[in-house]
């Protein structure tokens, strides 16, 4: 079920990238795809009834089915940080585009393609 939701979210993001003319909406579409992929990777490591992979007093040793997979979580931690970097850089570029062309709509930008 979570697989389905994340794949449908990826589809929504691709649809947004292809149809939206506003550059900021395209950036949001990229962020949606990013989140969907992260959800997919996390879901691939889920164990039914598993807890967070942290050794505590209640869970002192490795038992079958007690923990979820820690490796996808570690990889997604990297992916989230890189997503933040992409989003920040894209938003900064859009601020400059808006200042120069007065509009974020690709078809209504001033001084482009004239």
């Amino acid at each position: 079920m979570v697989y389905w939701i994340s794949i449908i979210l990826m589809g929504i993001g691709i649809y947004g990238l292809l149809t939206q003319k506003n550059l900021f909406k395209q950036l949001i579409s990229l962020a949606i795809i990013d989140t969907a992929v992260n959800v997919f990777i996390i879901a691939a490591g889920y164990v039914e009834g598993g807890k967070a992979p942290i050794y505590t007093k209640a869970l002192p040793s490795f038992l079958k089915g007690a923990f979820v997979d820690p490796l996808p979580q570690a990889l997604v931690l990297t992916a989230i940080v890189i997503g933040v970097g992409v989003l920040a850089l894209g938003a900064a570029l859009l601020v400059r585009v808006k200042e120069k062309h007065k509009n974020l709509d690709v078809e209504n930008m001033k001084g482009v393609g004239e």
Binding site: Y46, E48, G65
Partner: peptide
């Protein structure tokens, strides 16, 4: 979903 065998993965 939720059906993986952790013991057969490197994560173990």
């Amino acid at each position: 979903y939720g059906n993986i065998d952790l013991c057969s993965r490197v994560s173990s």
